[in-house]
């Protein structure tokens, strides 16, 4: 197998790694708190993509037992379903805190927030 074919077989994993990178960049690099939350979500989806791609088998059916065998593994799907719901709860609490921060300090910019806090 040539290197290029091996890479084509693993494109999903590569995409997952790139999503982790983009998520990290948004989380660290963006000044706006709402965008940091979006970056956290992109990072999470990268991990989801890694799990679901690991469960996939070429030519297999979804894990619905009415379809013909073989099936893809249901276990990573279950873990990711739980993770999606937990991720949304996390996002909701983070955004609630952001609304409170804005009420309190009148800004969502990380730098400005630091200056306002230093002045107090």
């Amino acid at each position: 197998m040539t290197g290029l074919e091996a890479l084509a077989d693993r494109l999903y994993y590569l995409a997952a790694f790139l999503l982790l990178g983009i998520g990290t960049y948004t989380l660290i690099g963006s000044q706006n708190l709402v965008k940091k939350v979006i970056g956290m979500n992109v990072f999470q989806t990268g991990i989801f993509l890694f799990f679901i791609a690991a469960a996939f088998i070429t030519g297999a059916s979804p894990p619905l037992l009415t379809a013909p065998a073989p099936y893809v593994s249901p276990l990573p799907h279950v873990l990711i379903l739980t993770a999606i719901v937990v991720g949304v709860s996390l996002t909701a609490v983070a955004l609630g805190l952001i609304v409170r921060i804005y009420d309190e300090y009148g800004t969502l910019n990380e730098e400005t927030l630091r200056e306002v806090q230093a002045d107090e």
């Binding site: 999903y12 989801f48 679901i52 791609a53 469960a55 996939f56 297999a60 059916s61 979804p62 894990p63 619905l64 893809v72 799907h77 990711i80 379903l81 999606i84 719901v85």
Partner: peptide, 10 residues
């Protein structure tokens, strides 16, 4: 990727 349940939730 044959994960319709995850697709619907997403």
């Amino acid at each position: 990727l044959r994960a319709p349940d995850v697709g619907l939730t997403e």
